[in-house]
């Protein structure tokens, strides 16, 4: 019966849009939507290319609290242009993090939560997306000095391109089974390196290397969560309560260089060989 109850009350996080995700994670009634759709700060570049723009450029910046702690959530809408970051959406993300850093410098302990559903740079705004992502990365490292910056990759888009590097800079990174995390999109690897290197149509192969379960098994993320709003919110509550003292993963060059030195790079890699390498280290 309790299983049935749980099922009846479970609520998928993956199925929610960016704005609903932010609202579901913040304390009830605490959400303030900054530069909301009615501000109509749209992409200044898309319509000239014949592409319909979205009123909030696909990025939601929501201030509020989680467990009473001040938090800013920046959520990317994966359904608009594949969650790609252009000038406006990128500036919203970077600007929100920069203001969170400023809060902390002024003694306000604002933490940041990034809901990442993104293919990376929006190629229609190429260099402005890339520049914005560099600034997002700079601001993550700055906020991380004071308060957690928690990345959540829930799926179904996943997190790729420059934003996967940003995910790698977060103090904590949470994924679900529906998440994929990797630098280069499968199509681009196939284009650049050939079908033998990477078959973009072989979905099981791609999931085996970059899916949430594999990333969790390799210790490249901090938590592997069920696709369930209450589970993700609970994990955020705990992480904000007890962020821990671990060295951020992006500072662990010594450990990773040591592991890579032991990895036989002559044969092609597969999911098992990478797990063995990274799990051997954890044991």
């Amino acid at each position: 019966m309790s299983d049935l109850n749980a099922l009846l009350h479970s609520r998928s996080f993956v199925e929610l849009g960016a704005r609903q995700r932010a609202a579901a994670l913040l304390d009830q009634g605490s959400l303030r939507d900054l530069l909301d759709p009615f501000a109509r700060v749209k992409s200044p570049w898309l319509e000239a290319q014949g592409i319909v723009a979205q009123a909030d450029d696909g990025v939601v910046v929501a201030k509020g609290s989680i467990g009473g702690r001040p938090v800013v959530i920046a959520a990317i809408e994966g359904n608009f242009q594949g969650g790609s970051l252009g000038e406006v959406g990128g500036a919203k993300l970077a600007g929100a993090l920069e203001l969170a850093a400023e809060d902390n410098r002024n003694g306000i302990p604002t933490a940041a939560v990034l809901l990442l559903e993104t293919g990376g740079v929006r190629l229609q705004e190429a260099n402005l997306g890339l520049a914005a992502i560099a600034e997002v990365q700079a601001a993550i490292v700055e906020v991380r000095q004071y308060q957690p910056v928690i990345g959540v990759v829930a799926g179904p888009v996943g997190c790729f391109g420059g934003m996967s590097i940003a995910a790698g800079l977060c103090s904590h990174l949470l994924v679900t089974r529906e998440a994929r995390l990797g630098l280069n999109g499968p199509q681009v690897i196939e284009q650049e390196a050939g079908l033998d290197e990477y078959d973009s149509r072989d979905r099981p192969f791609i999931w085996s290397l970059t899916g949430g379960e594999q990333r969790a098994a390799c210790g490249l993320v901090d938590a592997y969560l069920a696709d369930e709003v209450s589970v993700i919110r609970e994990c955020l509550l705990q992480t904000l309560e007890q962020p821990g003292e671990a060295l951020p993963r992006s500072r662990q060059y010594a450990r990773f260089l040591d592991l890579l030195a032991r990895f036989d790079a002559a044969p092609q890699a597969d999911a098992a060989s990478v797990r063995a390498l990274y799990q051997g280290d954890q044991a």
């Binding site: 630098l183 390196a193 290197e197 990477y198 290397l209 490249l220 092609q268 890699a269 597969d270 999911a271």
Partner: peptide, 9 residues
């Protein structure tokens, strides 16, 4: 761009 690269993060 490569398989080893994506697999190893």
């Amino acid at each position: 761009y490569g398989r080893r690269e994506e697999a190893l993060g």
